[in-house]
Computed example of a mutant assay.
Amino acid sequence: MVEAGRGHWPFALVHGEPLVAAAAWALGEAGVELVDVGTPWAAFAEAELPFVLHDPLCPLTPPEFLAACVAHAEATSAVTVGVRPVTDTVRELADGPIDGPFGGPFGGPFGDTVDRAGLLQVVSPIVLPAAVVAALDGPPTTDFAGLVAELATKFPVQTLEAPAQARRVADHDDLRVLEALTAPLPG
């Protein structure tokens, strides 16, 4: 479970439970053993097991998806990454100021709109196969997007599309959307 660099958000509440608790529960239900932060990295390499990084900012990632990612990493020996499609509009920054309603100090200099079809958002989990764990000198960075980019230069990386419940929480609005998406149906 990755808490470092996440500020107070792992302790925000989703359906009355801290995000970190919901994420830990999902790992346990998926059959993933939680380990102590102080465990030496060499112990993971010696265990010859996949290593699962789960972000508590993706607290409601279903246990079935977590388990499927572990199984995929074991079967393919590829780093396996949960991803979601990008649905927001993404714009490039222009080289200089742009005249018009969105130029200037408040709108910023925007260029072309990026085609979302080729974009993915890294969510949870990132599963490192045993061979990758053994090849690393120490614990990986906790910056998920940076980690995937770094690992892709050295190891095969494959993505699996995560269900909507695995969406990342970045602010209160995201948390409200996640709670609405995962609320039990009345009746």
Rank of each mutant, 00 (worst) to 15 (best):
L147N: 02
E17C: 13
D36W: 03
A42K: 13
A117C: 09
V86Y: 08
E150R: 15
I98M: 09
E46G: 07
T89Q: 15
G28S: 14
P18I: 15
F102W: 09
H8Q: 12
A30Q: 05
T141D: 12
D173E: 15
D137I: 00
L185N: 12
A94H: 04
R84M: 03
F44P: 07
L160A: 08
A152R: 11
G146N: 10
L120C: 14
A73R: 05
R176G: 08
H8F: 11
V20Q: 13
V177C: 13
H15D: 14
L49Y: 02
G38A: 07
P101Y: 08
P139H: 05
V169H: 13
G103H: 00
Q121H: 12
A71C: 09
A152K: 07
L181G: 03
V90R: 14
E64R: 00
V79E: 12
I126V: 06
P186C: 08
L120V: 06
A71K: 08
E179F: 06
E3W: 05
T87G: 14
V52M: 01
P139W: 12
P56V: 01
A4R: 04
G96H: 03
L49G: 05
E29K: 06
R167S: 10
W9A: 14
P101A: 02
D143L: 08
A94C: 10
A26K: 03
R84T: 10
F51W: 02
Q165D: 15
G108F: 05
G146W: 15
P50E: 04
T80E: 10
A21Y: 04
P109S: 15
E48I: 00
G5Q: 07
D174N: 07
P59N: 13
A117M: 04
P156F: 06
L53E: 02
A68V: 01
K154Y: 14
A152Y: 02
P105Q: 01
R176S: 08
M1I: 06
A94L: 11
G16E: 06
P59G: 12
G5Y: 04
P40G: 06
P10A: 06
A78W: 05
H72T: 09
G5R: 11
D36M: 02
P63R: 07
G138H: 05
A30V: 01
E33R: 11
G16W: 05
A130L: 03
G103S: 04
P10Y: 13
D95W: 11
P140D: 12
A67W: 00
T113C: 13
E33I: 01
D95I: 01
P140L: 02
D55A: 10
D171V: 05
A94N: 08
P40C: 05
L53K: 02
M1K: 10
E29I: 05
A24P: 11
G146L: 12
P129R: 04
G82N: 00
V52E: 03
P59W: 13
D174I: 00
G16S: 08
H15P: 07
L57K: 13
R167A: 14
R168P: 08
A152D: 11
V132L: 08
P105R: 03
G16V: 09
G138I: 07
E3T: 12
P163A: 09
W25Y: 15
S77W: 07
C58S: 15
F65V: 05
H54N: 07
V52W: 02
D95G: 09
V123W: 05
L160S: 02
A4Q: 13
D137G: 04
T39R: 08
V81N: 00
R84Q: 14
V32H: 00
P50T: 01
L93H: 07
V157P: 01
V133C: 09
P156R: 08
E74V: 01
